Simulated assay, not measured.
Amino acid sequence: MKYGQLILEKKEFVYLKRILNLSGYSKDIETKKSLQKLTQELHDAEIVDHERMPEDVVRFNSHVTVAQDEWQKTIQVVVPQHKNFKENKISILTPMGSALIGYALGDSIIWEFPNGTKELRIVNVEQEHNYSGLDIVI
C-alpha cells in the first residue's frame, strides 16, 4: 500500500460512515462482506482536509483504471445516487467501489468479489477537475 493506510478526505469519510451505517449492509452476501471489510479498514484510515488530499488517491468521483492479468477497465467511483452502469459509474456501496476507495495509484488490492477473490492493480487515477470535495449535504 503506497501510503501505508487508506486516505480519505474528511467530508467524504463522514459521508461514507453515514451511508454505511444507514445501508444496513446489503442482503447480497458478497456485497455485505465488502462493506464490512471497508468498515474495518476505515478504523485505521488517515483522514485529511481537502487541501491535503493526494491527487493519486481514489475518492468520490475519481476515474480509476484497474487491471487484473489481461483485463483492464476505467470506472468512476460515485455516491450511490449517481451510479450508472452504462457510463461506468459504480457506487461506493458495490464490491468494486468499496475495494478501491482510499487506495492510491500503484496499489494492489486483494478483495472478495461475487466471482471470488481477485487481485486488482490501480494503474491510473484521475480526479474531476471541477470537483472540490463532496458536493452533497451531509
Rank of each mutant, 00 (worst) to 15 (best):
D69K: 13
K73Q: 13
R59S: 15
K86G: 13
L35Y: 00
V77T: 01
N88R: 09
N21Y: 13
K86H: 12
K27D: 12
T39E: 15
L100W: 04
M53E: 05
I92Y: 05
D28V: 14
S108A: 12
E70F: 11
E30G: 07
P80H: 10
R18M: 02
G106E: 07
I101R: 09
H50K: 10
M96T: 12
Q40P: 01
S34H: 08
S91G: 11
G97H: 06
L42Q: 09
K73Y: 12
A104F: 02
S34T: 14
L20F: 05
K83D: 13
H43G: 08
L105D: 03
N88C: 13
I110V: 12
L20C: 06
S62D: 06
P54I: 00
V79G: 05
R59D: 14
L35K: 02
K27Q: 13
K83H: 12
S98Y: 02
I101D: 05
H43Q: 08
V79C: 15
Q72V: 07
V66D: 02
Q81L: 14
K83W: 13
K32A: 15
A45C: 12
H82W: 14
I101L: 09
E41V: 06
K89M: 01
I75N: 01
V66P: 04
L20H: 05
I47V: 10
E41L: 15
D49Y: 04
K89S: 00
T65W: 02
